[in-house]
Design a protein around this nucleic acid. Structure first.
Lengths: 209, 209
DNA sequence: GAGTTATGAATGAATG
DNA sequence: CATTCATTCATAACTC
């Protein structure tokens, strides 16, 4: 089943011509550059921690490990919002009284109100309600057991796909795009993208045994 | 201290806007595709047998998420469709150019095209566009804020400044694979990217909000 | 400090 | 289209 790549270059199985080899080499170089830039981008992207500083302005109980500790460049930062207990309380009460569907307007109001107690965005509020509702719902109907045929129990909620692929870039699969199906890791796991992408050694790429 | 406005658009330097994030996402997808292609190429290049658990030599048919990873044999695989990176890339580009109104006809075409790269149905395509549009819309209007002043917004995705950065790569347009031309570079221009790539892999990229 | 759990976020699909 | 739901992923927080 030979086929062509997107540009029409025939890619037969088996042998490669010099030209193709050359092309491959170049392509790999390109890929290397992209990786490099991506890395750089990522660095600049995550090195500052825009909102983290506000995660927990008033130590309500949660405490941030490294929150803006001294130099603001130390990265690591988690971008995930974590409600302060005050916010949580409010959210919880709102959730109870008004129950379902806080519309767009409402969301905004809530967000505004909560922003008084800490960093928060409308999206956070939205997600919170979304999750709150979904999870409370999932808990209830669970009462009737269904213990039967629970063989698969082992795979309950914690699929925890720790999928240990290779070293280095192991976490490549939780990249932005959902599907970890692409085999990037197969390429990367060898390359040891540690540093010199520029030396793109083809030899290292084979993911062949 | 850097200030940010309500909607998550940060004012400080070094922060990404949603649009930029979008672009990054796309760029990553492109990069993924390239790697994918490379893998394929490499495969046909150096093999006579598919080998290597990962890349499926026959077309991009690997829409099977966790493959033989751990537990699952229940493998019906989730019923939910998950676009392969190739598909995503295509969808994304179509979305961009045609911005809206993918009529029934078009949907069919797209579906057909994408089926070349993995399992997909017209409904999937339809839903995808539906969601894509809805969600992108949802992100923008999160601005008005209380004291509008964040009029800047915009930040058109195609800044396209062709800044001849690419210090390393002369020309990769004549390469076999889809050219990674959509400038990751214009995202990189923000400078101040510190080194040490290993401490936080690309995988850490997330929306900030 | 590795393994769990709780939960914020992303997204395909369904519903109005 | 606009919303909402369901499921899953990723990670902060917790536990031992």
């Amino acid at each position: 089943m030979e086929r062509e790549n997107q540009n029409g270059a025939y890619v037969g199985r088996g042998v490669m011509t010099e030209e193709q080899m050359e092309t491959l080499r170049k392509q790999i170089a390109v890929y290397a550059v992209i990786c490099e830039q991506l890395a750089l981008l990522h660095n600049s992207l995550s090195s500052f921690h825009p909102l983290s500083s506000g995660i927990n302005p008033n130590g309500d109980g949660y405490f941030n490990p490294m929150v803006a500790s001294s130099s603001a460049q130390r990265i690591s930062t988690r971008n995930r919002w974590t409600p302060t207990s005050t916010q949580l309380q409010i959210l919880e009460s709102i959730y109870e009284e008004k129950s379902g569907t806080p519309n767009r307007r409402r969301i905004r109001e809530i967000a505004t109100e909560l922003s008084e107690h800490g960093q928060i965005t409308e999206t956070n509020v939205y997600n919170w309600f979304q999750n709150r509702r979904a999870r409370s719902k999932r808990k209830q109907p669970q009462t009737m057991a269904t213990t039967d045929q629970a063989e698969d129990a082992a795979v309950t909620t914690d699929e925890k796909r720790s999928c240990g692929d290779s070293g280095g870039f192991e976490s490549y699969e939780h990249i932005l795009f959902p599907s970890p199906d692409l085999g990037i890791e197969h390429l990367l796991s060898r390359g040891e993208l540690s540093g010199d992408f520029n030396s793109y050694t083809i030899a290292d790429i084979k993911y062949k045994e």
